[in-house]
Amino acid sequence: MAVELSLRDFYGKTLVELGKKNPNVVVLDCDLSGSTRTSLFAKEFPARFFNMGVAEQDMIGTAAGLAAGGKIPFASTFAIFATGRGWEQIRQSVCYPQANVKIVASHGGVTVGPDGPSHQAGEDVAIMRAIPGMTVIVPADAYDTAAAVRAAEEFTGPVYIRLTRDKFPVIYEESRKFEIGRATTMKNGSDVTFITCGLMTHAALIAAEKLTQLGKSAAVLDMGTIKPLDEPAVLKAALETGAIVTAEEHNIIGGLGGAVAEAVSGNVPVPVVRVGLPDQYFSSGTPEELLEAAGLTPEHLVEAAMRAINLKRGGKA
């Protein structure tokens, strides 16, 4: 059993580290600072922390104003509220003028669990990806999160980072460096490539092991940045393995799978089997139950890989 660490714990800790290093780092939250772990920063730097109450639109606008004054605002709340309640503010006040605002949202995906569909964000990556000038990052574990948050602070311009409520199995070293826009090869393979983000990178590594037992060689490419997509890495995978399976804890529409299919279709048209949340609302439940119900399991990834391999040989889906 792999060690599991909380992405949001590492977000909070990294904010404190950045706050010590750079006095321009400021943090905003919408009454969820305990959950998002921005409370760690608030405790250390109370004058540079702004709780905006339950008012996401105002939080985004205030962050844009702080950025206009040369600050580096990190604005946090749950993924569904950050991206849904504040979408047009993110488009108009942040991305259009390229304000240097970082939106780091926790509680993405169905692993939010028992709070139910009102709090489960399955659309956030799609709606952030649709905004010109937005960088979209979905870290795969806690160390990846810390590295991505550091990279976002160094980067000039709007960034959206999607975190989760649940702990994730650790797949990276503590020394992990995050390069925005660059995929990471987790495993080489020749028959099919898993292109994944978030929790599904770990699931794909397990699936790849299972495929070995079935005599198939699967590569795993962790696509931590959904936008800008590492197109060269995607096309290289398409050329080298001839079949792709994407996997994400996000609606099957418009997320990583959509981005990869868009890149592949016009360049190296190979089969792309997309695994993601079905286009529906789920229910309350444990994260494990919900992942199982959504088909986001290593077993399902093995099936998807076999289907992709079969498709490239001209077989039927």
């Binding site: 105002d58 606008g61 205030t62 104003g65 702080l66 206009a68 040369g70 108009q92 006040s93």
Partner: peptide
């Protein structure tokens, strides 16, 4: 940047905080 109504005051607040 403005033009979509209702968004300027939040930004002005942010500037004042900065």
């Amino acid at each position: 940047t403005t033009g979509s109504l209702g968004q300027g005051l939040s930004q002005a607040n942010g500037i004042a905080l900065s």
